[in-house]
């Protein structure tokens, strides 16, 4: 029985280890101290009020939200038709196309980021909205295609054929049958892509400019230069945002299915 207790303790310790950094930013965000000190000498909301006055951070947050929405919309428009063809098609070269379109997920983001930087400089896209949108699409599109392909392939079998045999032309089959049945998958895709864009930092670091930056980049810069609990307040809010999206995902399709292959 000692072995069993030790095993239990090990599992608990590993769980704590895994969740500690995400959970601990929350008490830290209520710290009354001027620096990162554990345990905080007192609790206050000072960093939450300070946060709103940090104009650079707030502007970056607005940019990130807008950007994530744009990336989300663009990804759905581009990925939906592609995912339908790729999940259904039985043509030669299909596997190769899937590999090509999802390859950016496998490669080091730092390499992708550098490649974009070099190309964007030539076209004056650094620090511009089109540049950021394109840069985020590089990682969002593969995610979108992968999750949507899963959604298409888990559609109940033969229902589209049934609709077609009942007299529905292809476009009506899509609108009346395929799309409604895919809706949970589309919601999952939107949620994941939103987070991917909203959290993306490496590629953003390379393509943001002095006038236009994103929240993770602004946080990265802040943490690089100062260590006070202000970022803890921002982080706590981000953890809550992620948590709510996780719940949406879990309800819509199951998180494991959305992130796994």
């Amino acid at each position: 029985m000692i072995g069993r207790a030790a095993h239990r303790a090990l599992i608990a310790a590993l769980f704590l280890f895994l969740l500690a950094p995400v959970v601990l930013v929350i008490p830290m965000s209520f710290s009354a101290d001027a620096f990162l000190v554990w345990p905080p000498s007192g609790f206050s909301l000072r960093w939450y009020t300070a946060m709103w006055r940090e104009t650079k951070l707030m502007e970056a947050a607005r940019n990130s939200i807008l950007l994530a929405c744009l990336v989300c919309a663009a990804t759905l428009v581009l990925a939906m038709p592609a995912a339908l063809v790729l999940a259904r098609g039985r043509f030669r070269g299909r596997e190769a196309l899937v590999a090509l379109l999802t390859a950016p997920l496998l490669l080091p983001t730092i390499v992708l980021a550098l490649a974009l930087l070099i190309l964007f400089v030539g076209y004056g896209l650094i620090g511009s909205w089109p540049g950021l949108l394109l840069a985020h699409l590089l990682v969002a599109l593969p995610y979108g295609i992968r999750v949507l392909m899963t959604a298409v392939s888990t559609l109940p079998p033969a229902v589209e054929e049934a609709a077609s045999s009942l007299g529905a032309a292809p476009w009506r089959v899509f609108r009346r049958i395929t799309l409604p049945l895919m809706l949970p998958g589309v919601a999952a895709t939107a949620a994941i892509v939103f987070l991917v864009s909203f959290d993306e930092v490496v590629i953003s670091l390379f393509v943001v400019g002095p006038e236009l930056t994103t929240l993770p980049v602004a946080m990265f810069r802040y943490v690089e230069s100062r260590t006070d609990p202000l970022v803890a307040a921002v982080s706590a809010l981000l953890v809550l945002l992620t948590l709510s999206i996780v719940i949406v995902l879990e309800r819509a399709v199951g998180l494991g299915r959305a992130l796994g292959k």
């Binding site: 049934a162 077609s164 045999s165 009942l166 007299g167 529905a168 032309a169 049945l181």
Partner: peptide, 28 residues
């Protein structure tokens, strides 16, 4: 194409539309 053949097909796994009720399926 199938939607212009005017044939009724009953599939092995029925292929009922899960997002419609029974009447909706039959009315489609």
């Amino acid at each position: 194409p199938p939607h212009r053949r005017d044939m009724g097909i009953v599939f092995q796994n029925y292929a009922l539309f899960p997002h419609m009720d029974v009447a909706g399926n039959v009315a489609f």
